[in-house]
């Protein structure tokens, strides 16, 4: 049942992309997102398509995993596409009674759709090749300078990693409690909205109780190990840039320059 949901969907594999420093991947993803929203024309589209599929190929993650992430936004895509298609003013292309499809509309709709699809696929390359812990580590270290202006970077990162760690635990717990109540004849499927909400009580109460119990246990365990926050805390696996990271930075920057050049030349 719920066990099949993959959140923080790390896909273990032995690839160059997996081995990259999370900071490199964060930076690369950021540049990729900017490039996706700034490209224009077929040539630019060709460049980012080539780049993205190249990276996906290198990551050794099956393409179906990236596509799976798209299922969640299908409806959003359809709505955004339709709105752009029908509501953009401009040179009419097809006119059916009151519905007018303009040339600009077709252009906007296809651009929008491609951008959103690439955004999801590009970012899922990062989440599929980086464990949540690496990701928060990378964020913490990248944002470290902000602690100079009293932003609690370490605390935010710690909260993030705890929250991420708790997602699978709570999913499992939900699954267990749901089964236990179903075994006692509880019904989570049928009935109207109000009845359904009422039927959730036997699930939500034990879930909250257990979440608090776990939070308590965790706080106690952290205190027992003398956790006092980020000051002076060292890492078991500190993030260190390696040669391949330098290469990756170079590749990403060259790619970005090409996208910008293509855009300004046309």
């Amino acid at each position: 049942m719920l066990r099949d949901i993959t959140l923080g969907q790390y896909y273990p594999a032995d690839s160059v992309i997996h081995k990259l420093d999370p900071r490199t991947k964060l930076f690369g993803t950021l540049l990729f997102i900017i490039s996706v929203f700034s490209f224009d024309g077929l040539l630019g589209f060709g460049v980012i398509t080539l780049f993205m599929f190249g990276i996906i190929y290198l990551s050794k993650v099956p393409l179906s995993f990236m596509v799976r992430g798209l299922r969640a936004i299908v409806i959003l895509l359809l709505i955004a596409g339709a709105l752009n298609l029908f509501l953009t003013p401009g040179q009419p292309l097809i006119t059916l009674w009151k519905i007018v499809i303009t040339k600009e509309g077709v252009r906007n709709a296809s651009l929008m759709t491609v951008r959103m699809i690439y955004l999801i696929m590009g970012t899922s390359v990062m989440t599929l090749t980086t464990t949540p812990n690496q990701l928060t580590d990378g964020l913490e270290k990248s944002l470290r300078p902000l602690s100079k202006i009293h932003v609690p970077v370490h605390e935010i990162a710690m909260m993030m990693s705890i929250a991420l760690r708790f997602i699978p635990i709570l999913i499992e717990e939900t699954d267990k409690i749901m089964k236990a109540q179903m075994a006692r004849g509880a019904d989570f499927e049928s009935g109207g909205l109000i009845k359904k909400a009422k039927n959730m009580v036997p699930l939500l109460v034990p879930l909250f109780v257990s979440a608090f119990r776990r939070a308590n246990d965790l706080a106690l365990a952290m205190e027992a190990r003398c956790y006092v926050g980020g000051d002076g805390r060292t890492k078991m696996k500190p993030l260190v840039y390696e040669k391949r990271d330098v290469g990756a930075y170079a590749v990403v920057i060259v790619y970005f320059v090409i996208v910008v050049l293509v855009k300004s030349l046309l």
């Binding site: 267990k176 409690i177 236990a180 109540q181 075994a183 009580v201 109460v205 034990p206 109780v209």
Partner: peptide, 12 residues
């Protein structure tokens, strides 16, 4: 009827 592991966690 099924009594799960740690059934006390299902009390609500």
């Amino acid at each position: 009827g099924m009594v799960f592991q740690y059934p006390e966690h299902q009390l609500f």
